[in-house]
C-alpha cells in the first residue's frame, strides 16, 4: 500500500518536471537512442534516490541534482564498459540575417553549440537557460555563486565564439 502511494507520488513529481528531464537528455545525449537510454537511467536513479528525499530542498533542485549527476557520470553500454558521450559535429551555418532564420532554428544552433561544451559547462548553461537563480545553481552544482558567475561569463563568450557565424 505504502509502496503504491510512493509510486503514485513519484510519478506525479516526474510528470510535473518531465520537460526539464527531456532537456537534460537533449543537452547530454546526441541521438534518440542515447536520449532514451539516458532518460531511462535518470528515472532509475531518481527512483533509487526517492526514499532518501526528505524535502530539505525543493523537489526541482533534487531532480536536477540526480538528473545532472546521472548525465555527467555517463552511461555504460553493455560491452563498452564505462563510456562518455561524444558530441556531434556542428551543422552548416544558416545565416543570422536570413529572414527565414527563426527563433527555433537559432535554438537548434544553440543546442549544437552547447554540445561543444564540457559536461560541467553544459550543466551551468542549462540551469541558466532554465532561469534558475545562482543560489539554486549553487545548491545543485556545489559551486560558489561567485565562481558560477565567472564561469557563466566565460561560457557566454565561448558560445558567442562558437555561434558567431550563425
Amino acid at each position: 500500500m505504502l509502496k503504491l502511494e510512493a509510486e503514485k507520488e513519484f510519478i506525479k513529481h516526474i510528470s510535473q518536471h518531465e520537460l526539464m528531464l527531456y532537456k537534460v537528455c537533449r543537452v547530454y545525449a546526441y541521438n534518440d537512442a542515447d536520449r532514451q537510454d539516458l532518460f531511462q537511467e535518470i528515472v532509475i536513479q531518481l527512483w533509487k534516490a526517492y526514499p532518501k528525499f526528505n524535502g530539505d530542498s525543493k523537489i526541482s533542485t533534487w531532480l536536477y541534482r540526480v538528473a545532472l549527476n546521472t548525465a555527467i557520470s555517463g552511461l555504460r553500454k553493455k560491452k563498452n564498459l564505462i563510456r562518455s558521450y561524444e558530441p556531434a559535429s556542428m551543422p552548416e551555418p544558416a545565416g543570422e540575417h536570413d529572414p527565414q532564420y527563426s527563433e527555433e532554428e537559432r535554438l537548434q544552433q544553440l543546442y549544437y553549440a552547447i554540445e561543444q561544451l564540457n559536461a560541467v559547462e553544459k550543466a551551468i548553461v542549462m540551469l541558466y537557460m532554465e532561469d534558475r537563480s545562482y543560489e539554486e545553481m549553487e545548491d545543485i552544482l556545489g559551486l560558489s555563486q561567485g565562481n558560477l558567475r565567472v564561469k557563466m561569463n566565460r561560457i557566454k563568450e565561448k558560445l558567442r565564439q562558437l555561434t558567431k557565424n550563425y
Binding site: 534516490a49 533534487w62 541534482r65 549527476n69 546521472t70 555527467i72 552544482l141 556545489g142
Partner: peptide
C-alpha cells in the same frame, strides 16, 4: 547510488 548529492560532491566521491 541515487546520486542526489551536489554535482561537485558526487564527482569527487566517484
Amino acid at each position: 547510488e541515487g546520486m542526489d548529492h551536489m554535482v561537485k560532491v558526487n564527482l569527487e566521491q566517484q
